Simulated assay, not measured.
Amino acid sequence: MKTLISTILVIAYLGAIAQPDTEIYLMDLNRSGNEFNLSNAINISANPGYDNQPAFWPDGKSVIYSRNINGQIEIARYFLDDGKTEIITNTLQGSEYSPTPTPDKKISSIRLDTTGLQLLYSYNLKGQSKVLVEDLVIGYHAWISKQEVVAFVLGDTATMQIVNTKTNEANIVAKNIGRSLHKIPASSRFSYVDKSSNPWIIKSMDPETLESQHLINVVDASEDYCWTPNGFIIMGSGSKLFIWKRSGEWIEIANLISEGISKITRVAVSPDGQKLAIAAE
């Protein structure tokens, strides 16, 4: 029975992430005092099918993301200086999702094999891989230390767990959360979306004490957001982008409907805070 339930959950997860015709857009994020605006939006994937989950490389010079290649989802890397795209993986037995830079300058990514096996892997920049976390069906993750990730783990009930990637020790710290997990800049804390209330709430948590704090309610029923280097949150809802500065409310900074963008999902900000990448339909 457990095997059957796990298989159903993996299939359900695959259906949830197999979004059609999403693209990755890159744009300048400009700030003047308390004003923010976006400019020079370009489609950096320009590719049929599912292109999603962008993340900036730590030096800010490239963006990694999941890219559709003839129905297979691989890890791609777009270089900002020359506009070239490099395909990092060629995993015939599975697809890669949520590629994320690791503290040791590699890439962690969830791989869903054609057999239904779904695990978190580590990849070097040549695409060579090894299992990073055994036995846990991880849907989303974020690095919170050199060897720990906070993870959205599928199961009979989805849970948020802090996982030590060296020892494979895992501890459940919350339930009923969203997919967007982030280390908070200049802090030991991480953030997540608590879906146990209505409206949903972005909360922070101390990984040592497990004490949580209410930050801000989400915009509408959105769950995808990111942190800027100076501690603001950017969140998308429909064709609009909003920013939250601590002790304030959400402020709309852009409506991208004129760019042909109607549904923003994933968002990422460069380490210097000057570039924004989004996945959108």
Rank of each mutant, 00 (worst) to 15 (best):
K2F: 13
T3R: 14
L4M: 12
I8M: 11
V10L: 04
A12N: 14
A12M: 12
Y13W: 10
L14C: 01
Q19E: 15
I24L: 04
M27R: 00
L29E: 07
N30S: 06
N30K: 12
S32V: 09
S39N: 12
I44R: 05
S45K: 09
G49N: 10
G49K: 10
G49I: 12
P54R: 00
P54D: 04
A55R: 09
F56I: 05
F56Y: 08
P58F: 03
G60Q: 10
G60K: 06
K61S: 12
Y65S: 00
N68S: 05
N68L: 06
I73R: 11
I73M: 10
A76T: 02
F79I: 02
G83N: 00
G83S: 00
N90C: 09
L92N: 09
Q93P: 03
G94K: 01
E96R: 02
S98W: 11
K106M: 15
I107S: 05
S108Q: 08
L112H: 01
L119C: 07
Y121Q: 06
Y121D: 01
N124Y: 09
L125Y: 14
L125V: 03
K126H: 09
Q128D: 11
Q128A: 09
S129I: 00
L132G: 02
L132H: 08
E134G: 12
D135W: 01
L136M: 13
Y140N: 12
K146D: 15
A151S: 06
V153D: 03
V153P: 02
L154N: 11
G155V: 03
D156P: 11
T159R: 07
T159M: 05
M160R: 03
I162C: 08
N168K: 07
A170I: 13
V173M: 03
A174I: 03
G178S: 02
G178T: 00
K183N: 07
K183W: 09
P185K: 12
P185Q: 12
P185A: 13
A186V: 10
R189Y: 10
Y192N: 05
Y192I: 01
S196T: 13
S196W: 04
N198E: 12
P199S: 10
P199E: 08
W200F: 09
I202V: 11
K203R: 15
K203D: 06
S204L: 05
S204E: 04
T209I: 01
L210F: 15
S212R: 13
Q213L: 10
L215E: 10
I216S: 00
V218M: 02
V218C: 07
V218R: 05
D220Q: 14
A221H: 13
G231V: 11
I233R: 10
I234V: 04
G236C: 08
S239P: 11
I243C: 07
R246D: 13
I251D: 11
I253C: 11
S258V: 08
E259C: 14
S262A: 13
K263P: 01
K263W: 09
D272K: 13
Q274K: 15
K275V: 01
L276Q: 04
A277Y: 04
